[in-house]
Write a protein that binds this DNA or RNA. Structure first.
Length: 756
DNA sequence: GCTACACCGGTTTTT
DNA sequence: CCGGTGTAGC
């Protein structure tokens, strides 16, 4: 810290180098004080600006621990920390308050939460836990889950919370009948969380905001933070913006960095209007725009700009770069999703062979996780390594959640969600009947279900004192409950002395969890995979062996709840093709990008097509995807797509229609009409309308007597399966996946295929 | 109380 | 195609 001060007095020793920044970047970095708004387009060096700004501030004399930098994802936080430390050294870098909104809130709540009645050892309920609670509330209120789906209710409650609506206000408001029901569910929900000493993600933010109503707390932090920086500001919710304001209220030094064009999380209560509010609330704010792109070729940017330009209510801005000698992005019409996948595999294979590409250079971007399947299949066939980001996350796996629930009961026996999850896992003869009895008893006597279990088992849990009549359960159930309660009590005792991993191992042994997994699994492979996950979890807990046994459990459970980021546990080899959703791809970049499923009903997604606002967001999503590409961009759509079991035809995405023809290199099956109002294509021989009659049947070429799925044989290529057919005049192009030689496209009349 | 199986319906994005 | 729920039979 003192070193930094002396740096200030001797500017020539500055180590944060500003020379390689452009003018706009430098302006943002060296903005001395007061509110600052940085509009940072994709690839404009946003992270660099933030890290340099932090570095610069420190050199100007601000102690690192008086700087608070907030991100949305753990990944972003980690990257920023790494880059910051390489810029200004680990010692100073590690002192900066840097983390996600949620992480920072937890830190503040752990320190001061008790002042507003937040339990010292609160646990964090993730979305799965939340869902369980809502489900039980729906049941309790005897609602029809079809009419009032827990999912919809939870999302309504969560939205209200992130908008900063209190439970009381929500109940008092004259909303729809659905809202009324949601209000009642919310009440039950809140009670359950409170009984479990739990906060959900929204609570973490809300309670922290409440914390700042406390004069003492407010003073501490107003004096603490000299500078507050918020990344991805377009993704902030109402409550998050309020937090940012509260944190920066003392100094008035709030820097927000964002890009309205990349706002893709409104469904998670991100409110793009916060950018306007920021300007409204900070009249004197300085605005800096970063439009120079250092990632993509101009050819890619032109396409992306064309798409985002059509967004309504948008202030016109365009990304530019010096990198002008790139190839035109390619638009490829595939026949089906497997054909789409083949295009990618073939392209990657080609690149690998001529050395122009490494697997890790390429990424496949899609709207929905389900789309990854076809790509995976093809990549496997071609022997191309890939890593699937997201999909089923490690901490969402059943076996992992089971064990986490065990640990949660160990930590807090009153946690009803965790209790319900594991009390009969592995099955130990405690069924619905017994559970009902326990629940009833616990409600009646204001005890936890765990205490009910202990009482039923004849174990005198602390608070009972022998005054109460134990819940009437069968002898068998009582014996099982005793076993369970003893197991938990022993584990709790063990957890105060021994490392977490050993606690976990004891539980596994005593419950014979592995045997249960095997019994539960349909195949040996499944059992093996699930056991591997268990082992992996133990490995993770071993990272906590350096912490005192008592505290390790707390720390571990907290981390697990807050880490939804998948790249903490890479799903594959590092040098592999990345398969990732458009949402998750935000903030990443790849030399070669394949965007697949550029079709109506997929992008824009079916569920977003009715609402203009959501449609805009789909457009931005498209823009985000395109701007991930550094060198090559491939846009793909399939003529025919199997989705949810059925096969159908989607027209090409309307966003494609916004791209001027000359900006793309088109590889179309047929000269096709794209989107809605497109200029007439030249030399068009077949219109989309002509294809509709084939739908949902595949295009077939009856004259060649082949259909999809036929097993055929070829003189040179050997045996294979027809995977696609397309008419070319009276002939047909037959795509065959050969067992030995891979996928080939052949002209039926020339190939001389025989049925196998 | 447990398991196996049939059915149903939903099916985006995630800190 | 998946998972969650409901039912019947053990």
């Amino acid at each position: 810290m003192l070193a930094a001060m002396s740096d200030f007095s001797a500017p020539h020793t500055l180590s944060v180098d500003l020379d390689h920044l452009n003018q706009a970047q430098r302006a943002a970095v060296t903005h001395p004080h007061g509110p600052l708004l940085v509009i940072a387009g994709p690839g404009s060096g946003k992270t660099r600006v933030i890290t340099h700004r932090i570095g610069w501030l420190i050199e100007q004399g601000t102690p690192p621990w008086r700087i608070l930098a907030v991100t949305f994802t753990n990944r972003a936080a980690r990257e920023m920390r790494t880059r910051l430390e390489s810029l200004i050294g680990q010692e100073q870098g590690s002192d900066v308050w840097l983390g996600t909104f949620h992480r920072i809130c937890v830190r503040m709540l752990r320190a001061h939460g008790q002042e507003i009645g937040v339990p010292r050892n609160f646990v964090i309920f993730d979305s799965d836990d939340q869902m369980q609670v809502v489900r039980s509330a729906v049941k309790e209120l005897q609602l029809d889950p079809k009419q009032y789906s827990p999912r919809a209710l939870l999302s309504r409650i969560s939205r209200a919370k992130s908008e900063g609506t209190s439970q009381q206000d929500f109940l008092a408001a004259t909303g729809s009948y659905f809202d009324e029901v949601a209000g009642r569910v919310w009440e039950r929900y809140a009670v359950q969380l409170s009984e479990a000493s739990a906060l959900d993600f929204d609570d973490l933010l809300l309670k922290t905001l409440d914390l700042f109503d406390q004069e003492t707390v407010r003073q501490i932090y107003e004096e603490r933070f000299d500078h507050v920086l918020v990344d991805e500001f377009q993704d902030t919710s109402t409550v998050q913006y309020q937090l940012a304001r509260a944190w920066s209220a003392g100094s008035g030094n709030l820097t927000v960095v964002g890009d309205p064009d990349q706002s893709i999380y409104s469904w998670r209560s991100a409110d793009i209007r916060n950018l306007n509010y920021f300007v409204r609330d900070h009249r004197e704010a300085t605005e800096v725009q970063l439009n120079d792109n250092y990632r993509s070729t101009q050819q890619i940017l032109d396409v992306a700009n064309a798409v985002i330009d059509r967004a309504a209510d948008r202030i016109k801005r365009s990304l530019v770069t010096d990198n002008r000698d790139g190839a035109l992005p390619r638009l490829h019409e595939a026949y089906s999703e497997s054909d789409e996948a083949e295009y990618i595999s073939n392209h990657v294979e080609l690149g690998l062979r001529d050395g122009s590409l490494r697997p890790g250079d390429a990424a496949v971007l899609y709207r929905t996780n389900a789309q990854s399947r076809a790509i995976e299949e093809s990549l496997v066939q071609h022997g191309i390594p890939y890593r699937l980001v997201g999909a089923t996350r490690f901490y969402d796996r059943r076996e992992v959640r089971d064990l986490l629930a065990y640990l949660r009961v160990v930590r807090n026996a009153a946690d009803p969600v965790a209790f319900a999850r594991v009390v009969n896992v592995p099955t130990r003869g405690i069924g619905a009947k017994t559970l009902d009895t326990l629940t009833e008893w616990s409600d009646l006597n204001a005890r936890s279900t765990f205490q009910a279990a202990a009482a039923a088992a004849g174990i005198d849990a602390d608070a009972l004192g022998g005054y109460l009549v134990p819940p009437p359960v069968s002898r068998r159930a009582a014996a099982s409950l005793k076993e369970f309660v003893t197991l938990i009590d022993d584990a709790r005792e063990q957890s105060s002395r021994e490392p977490l991993s050993d606690v976990l191992r004891s539980i596994l042994v005593k419950t014979q969890y592995r045997e249960w997994l095997v019994r539960q699994s349909d195949t040996e492979t499944e059992a093996a995979t699930r056991w591997e996950n268990v082992q992996e979890l133990i490995t993770v807990t071993e990272n906590y062996s350096g912490i005192a046994p008592g505290a390790a459990l707390d720390a571990f459970l907290e981390d697990v709840a807050l880490v939804a980021d998948v790249d903490d546990l890479p799903d594959g080899p590092p040098d592999a093709v990345t398969l990732i959703t458009l949402h998750q791809a935000k903030g990443l970049e790849f030399p070669v990008v394949f965007m697949i499923g550029l079709e109506e009903y997929l992008l824009p997604h079916q569920l977003s097509m009715d609402d203009p606002k959501q449609l805009q967001e789909e457009r931005r999503l498209c823009y985000v995807g395109m701007t991930r590409a550094m060198r090559e961009l491939h846009l793909l759509y399939a003529f025919r797509r199997a989705y949810q079991g059925r096969s159908g035809h989607n027209p090409p995405s309307r966003f494609l229609a916004d791209i001027p023809e000359e900006l793309l290199q088109r590889h179309l099956r047929q000269q096709a009409r794209v989107g809605e109002d497109v200029r007439p294509a030249r030399n068009r021989t077949v219109r989309w309308d002509d294809f509709d009659s084939f739908d949902p049947e595949p295009v077939s070429a009856p004259s060649v007597g082949l259909k999809e799925g036929d097993e055929v044989s070829h003189e040179i290529f050997g045996d294979g399966v027809v995977i696609a057919l397309r008419a070319i005049g009276r002939d047909a192009e037959v795509t065959v996946r050969f067992a030995d030689t891979g996928v080939k496209r052949l002209l039926a009349s020339m190939a001389n295929l025989t049925r196998a």
